[in-house]
Amino acid sequence: MRKEITCIGCPMGCRMTAEVEDGKILSVEGYSCNVGKKYAQEELTVPKRMVTSLVHVRGSSRPLPVRTSAPIEKSKIFDCLREIRACEITPPVKIGDVIISRVCGTQADIVATREVF
């Protein structure tokens, strides 16, 4: 199967084409440096993203911003957002406080990125 990837390593934004069969990378073409090659390999095996979103704060209309403590699998982003949306916290909260641990069965926690008194 052919897959198209745009490198994010620099403004060049190299368009790369990869051949993938049964989860195995057969070839990657179109990169101009090792940053691109490495990025393509990551994107083709398990693409990961940091997720940032908002959590309800009890007794306030203003939400608490949160993020994953580490990048999570791209395929789990919307499950992760659903878990975050279902959550409600009670102040006080400090930056770095764990709001949800091991979100969606990943190794990452959801942590607060702002203080709420």
């Binding site: 940032t52 979103s53 911003p65 990125t113």
Partner: peptide
């Protein structure tokens, strides 16, 4: 700016906007 990507040059870690400001 609650998304991440701030501070890679200054703090060598990817922070969100509120964390960078703090």
């Amino acid at each position: 700016c609650i998304h991440n990507g701030f501070g890679l040059h200054t703090f060598h870690e990817e922070l969100t906007g509120p964390e960078y400001a703090q």
